[in-house]
Amino acid sequence: MDESTAPAGATAWLADADPRPHKVWAEWEQHGVALIPLGRRFDAVRVPAERMHAAAGSDTPRTVADALRSWLEGPVLRDLRSSLGPYYVLIAPDADWGGPDDRLSTDVFLGVPRPGHPTMLTRWIVEPQAPGHLCDPRYLRALLATADPLRTVGR
Rank of each mutant, 00 (worst) to 15 (best):
P149L: 10
A55F: 12
V24C: 07
P118A: 08
V33S: 05
G32T: 01
P118G: 08
A49R: 15
P75V: 03
R155A: 01
P75R: 00
L150Q: 12
P113N: 08
R78H: 09
W124I: 04
A67H: 13
R81I: 00
D43H: 11
R41T: 05
T119F: 00
Y87C: 08
A15L: 09
I36F: 02
P137M: 03
R20P: 13
L150M: 12
I125Q: 04
S82M: 01
P149W: 03
L14F: 10
D102Q: 01
L140K: 06
L144W: 11
T106C: 06
P131Y: 05
A56T: 08
E3L: 00
R123C: 01
D102T: 11
H117R: 14
A130K: 02
D96C: 10
V76A: 00
G85E: 12
T106Q: 12
L140S: 07
D94F: 13
D94A: 06
P149V: 04
H53F: 07
V33E: 08
L150N: 09
D96H: 11
R40S: 15
R103F: 15
H117Q: 04
T146P: 07
G132A: 05
V76P: 13
P21A: 06
P7G: 14
Q30R: 15
R114Q: 13
D2H: 02
P118R: 07
W124Q: 03
G111F: 01
T5P: 07
R20I: 13
R151V: 07
P149I: 06
P131H: 07
G74D: 07
G85H: 09
G116L: 00
V108G: 14
D66H: 15
G111D: 06
P115R: 06
L143I: 00
D43A: 02
L14V: 14
Y88F: 14
L35K: 02
D16E: 14
P137F: 02
A130D: 12
V112K: 05
V126N: 09
P7W: 00
R155L: 10
L134W: 05
V112N: 03
T11F: 00
G98L: 03
R46N: 13
A92F: 07
P100V: 06
D43W: 06
L104C: 03
S4A: 08
R62L: 00
L134D: 08
H22R: 15
D59V: 04
K23V: 07
G111S: 08
F42G: 00
F42R: 00
A54T: 04
D66K: 12
A92D: 11
A44F: 03
V153L: 15
A130E: 14
E29S: 15
A8C: 11
F42C: 10
